[in-house]
């Protein structure tokens, strides 16, 4: 609990999500997904996404979760967790954040005032390994071009 290797994140004004948004198809009714149904199997050798999640790749989805405390107050990038998280996943040894997280890339840079709050995120589902070029943060599932509201 004493180790605080702060990752140096450079300010990210244009997310990949925002760039891709130019080509996004017109909005449709979002499909609801949940943390409980993301995975087909979940174990120490890794996990497999549920068939429905894989099939929803590239489509509009909505997901309820908790906004993890962000690195800074304004960003396009934060982590959504199943349970409320006391710690900033970027601020401490990566030992501390849970495995079943969903990374959110917002449509626009937003003041992230809802840290710790239950929120609904809507946006385009991305599945597959992706390393954030600025932070080096590796994620397996993301909601891009997203917006959110408090529950």
């Amino acid at each position: 609990m004493t180790d605080h290797p702060h990752l140096s994140l450079t300010r990210r004004r244009f997310s990949i999500g925002a760039a891709l948004a130019l080509f996004a198809s017109p909005a449709r009714a979002a499909e609801w997904i949940s943390f409980d149904t993301l995975y087909k199997s979940f174990g120490v050798r890794g996990f497999e996404f549920a068939d429905r999640i894989v099939a929803l790749k590239g489509q509009e989805v909505s997901l309820t979760g908790y906004m993890a405390p962000p690195l800074r107050a304004e960003s396009t990038f934060f982590v959504l967790t199943r349970e409320p998280l006391a710690i900033c996943p970027f601020c401490q040894s990566d030992a501390d954040w849970p495995v079943d997280i969903v990374v959110i890339y917002l449509k626009a840079e937003t003041p992230l005032v809802s840290a710790g709050a239950k929120i609904i995120v809507s946006g385009r589902l991305e599945v597959g390994s992706w390393t954030d070029p600025d932070s080096g943060f590796v994620s397996q599932i993301r909601i891009a071009d997203a917006s959110y509201r408090r529950v």
Partner: peptide, 12 residues
């Protein structure tokens, strides 16, 4: 312990 491409990995 898991390769980066495995969902759930924390390796780089």
């Amino acid at each position: 312990f898991l390769a980066k491409s495995t969902p759930g990995s924390k390796r780089t």
